[in-house]
């Protein structure tokens, strides 16, 4: 692999995504799932990709790592992982990148683990394949990884099969597999959906600690704005295949500028509010198969719409590190 470009090295950016677009061909037409998505994640940074179902947050992750199914394809843009272009990489090259330089964990960890191999071996597999360790060294390192993700009695648990472990334990094993090769980037796709809140807290603590220790960049994909608020340094809000707002977490929560972000916040049950204070978001996601999708895909649901909104979507940097794709931000 080529060395990092000077620009990327200078900005300490691990992943740079620009104008990244993805389409799915279906019987009912072409779904424009992602449209010119752009963001970057720096070393040690945790960025949350937040949105409701159908916003394209998971598609972003899958497309970046070359895991789209046959109907999907990247139609434009660039995604550079430490300087390596992912969009033009061959399947073999992507496969080498996955698991070594970029790792991913999923919702429902038990389904993602091999049911008939014990977890120690599954962690060892990754180490042998991507780190070139021998069988014995891999087994020892696997136990260390289990210890690192806070699994008690790791030497014994290494011999356990996924069905013998709780959901939270399985997700910790997934994290151990993901970080075993010290990847530069970890994509966590709804990693705690389906886990209990107490387990979620523990799993998120572990992910945060590992990121801090190793300088790994993390993309946390979640529908839960409160989880993103607690666990990320920056939040990018997605709506219908667009990133509509991208800002440091505190800024985004205190001074949301995009109308959709404001709506999303107003709909999130917080610890303090009354039910009557919550507001739903009017309308629905636009049909992404339409040929005449408006430049702003939120326009039809937006109460701040202007004639200018018919103009092509454009990023506006309101303050340093606070971008909004809106002609009339609040």
């Amino acid at each position: 692999m080529s060395a990092a470009t000077p620009a990327a090295a200078a900005s300490q950016s691990v992943l740079d995504v620009t104008d990244f677009s993805v389409e799915f061909r279906t019987r009912a037409g072409i779904v424009r799932a992602l449209d010119r998505v752009a963001f970057s994640v720096g070393r040690g940074e945790t960025m949350a990709l937040v949105g409701e179902s159908g916003s394209g947050k998971s598609v972003t992750a899958y497309a970046l790592l070359g895991l789209l199914d046959a109907a999907g394809r990247i139609t434009g843009g660039s995604a550079r992982l430490e300087g390596t272009e992912l969009t033009s990489a061959s399947p073999a090259a992507l496969s080498a990148i996955r698991g070594k330089r970029a790792a991913m964990i999923f919702q429902n960890p038990r389904a993602a683990l091999n049911p008939i191999r014990n977890v120690g071996k599954q962690i060892g597999d990754v180490l042998r394949r991507h780190a070139g360790l021998g069988a014995r060294a891999a087994a020892a390192e696997a136990i260390e990884m289990l210890r690192a993700v806070g699994i008690p009695d790791p030497a014994r648990r290494a011999g356990a099969y996924p069905f013998e472990l709780s959901g939270g334990m399985c997700q910790r094993v997934m994290i151990a597999i993901a970080v075993a090769t010290r990847p530069a980037l970890l994509i966590a796709d709804e990693p705690t959906t389906g886990l209990d809140v107490t387990t979620q807290a523990v799993v998120m603590d572990i992910m945060g600690r590992l990121a801090a220790e190793t300088g790994m960049a993390t993309i946390l994909i979640t529908h839960d704005l409160a989880l993103a608020a607690e666990r990320s340094g920056r939040i990018a809000v997605m709506h219908a295949g667009h990133i509509v707002e991208d800002a440091p977490t505190k800024t985004l929560l205190l001074y949301p500028r995009h109308p959709y972000t404001r709506r999303l916040l107003a709909a999130t049950p917080t610890a303090a509010g009354n039910l009557a204070d919550l507001r739903s978001i009017p309308g629905n996601l636009p049909d992404l198969r339409r040929d005449d999708l408006p430049p702003c895909r939120f326009a039809a649901r937006c109460d701040r719409r202007l004639p200018a909104c018919e103009a092509p979507m454009q990023w506006r940097e309101l303050e340093p590190h606070h971008r909004v794709a809106c002609w009339n931000p609040a």
Binding site: P152, V197, A201, A226, E230, L253
Partner: peptide, 23 residues
Amino acid sequence: RGLVAAVPRLDGVRADALRLVGD
């Protein structure tokens, strides 16, 4: 207490948050 402390909040994670470990 552990359950309440584990619930994510928009105002950010609390440093003193109680963690229930184990299953």
